[in-house]
Nucleic acid binder design. Structure first.
Lengths: 152, 152
DNA sequence: ATGACTGCAAACTCTTTGCACAACA
DNA sequence: TGTTGTGCAAAGAGTTTGCAGTCAT
């Protein structure tokens, strides 16, 4: 990725927002946190921790996987990152800015974003009735992708 | 669990159905498969593989965890069992007969069933538009349970 | 009889933990 | 300067795989 004026501007804006949120929570601002935050938000896709590591390693080769996990957890607590689990392989992390559902192939594990309908209010009401304080919902559609269907 | 006339009747009905499905698919009928099938369907809750093992072990002490996993996968392929992943700890398995959503506590990992609203048809349409052949959807509401909210 | 299924053991993947050093505030 | 955060290594949890013996058909 080349550092065009636009991507620099986007990164600066992301950094500014994260810095603010970190300070609010009494957390320190580190280059690791800024870079992980950028990595998740500059991709439109969902990423595994390993992929975040690969992305951030270009700018900061010494960063480690435990730090990736710790940082993603912190960003999740701050409401900036969302965690998705399809039960196939690794956890996925993505920007929390663009609400959407996921479609997952139950054979090859491929995952794609699906434009999100509004989250069903009944589900939140049901969770509340069960004594939960609902914060967000995750909708995954399982099935077969084109390629796997064609493969029989 | 005592073997009342009623539970024996339910088990017999479950066995009959599974036997039919297995034969259709060219699979063999084994006591392991019958017992795992009963364990998942006689509980109203979702179970981990370990819990299924514990349940089945009472009747068949020699059964092993790899067999539990293999059997649950087969039952899932036959459409009799559903797999749920909240991203916290172990996979859960449950009967496919009773559609519902789940609420998961993001602190303690507790999971409860929530009466299911109809699955959003827009999500299926979106998956189809993305080239998927959707089969089922899974809705999980994340939040804090009563106990964890009270604990601060 | 023969091929699928099971049980055992071990490997594997992904994630988390413990601890010493580094670096933000 | 005092903690918080990071990196390394290792452990941990959960799931899967390979193979020899068993059992359904």
């Amino acid at each position: 990725m080349s550092a065009t004026a636009e991507t620099v501007g986007v990164a600066a804006e992301l950094d500014r927002e994260l810095t603010e949120r970190l300070r609010e929570g009494g957390h320190r601002v580190t280059s690791q946190r800024l870079l992980v935050h950028r990595a998740v938000h500059e991709q439109q896709r969902h990423l595994t921790a390993e992929q975040v590591l690969g992305s951030v390693s270009q700018a900061l080769p010494s960063i480690s996987l435990p730090t990736i996990y710790a940082t993603l957890e912190l960003l999740e607590d701050l409401g900036l990152v969302r965690r998705v689990s399809t039960g196939t392989g690794a956890l996925l992390f993505e920007s929390r800015r663009t609400p959407h559902a996921h479609a997952a192939c139950r054979r090859c594990g491929q995952i794609v974003d699906v434009p999100a309908p509004q989250i069903d209010p009944d589900a939140f009401a049901g969770a509340r009735a069960a004594g939960f304080a609902p914060e967000e919902a995750q909708l995954i559609v399982f099935g077969l992708c084109n390629a796997c269907r064609a493969a029989g």
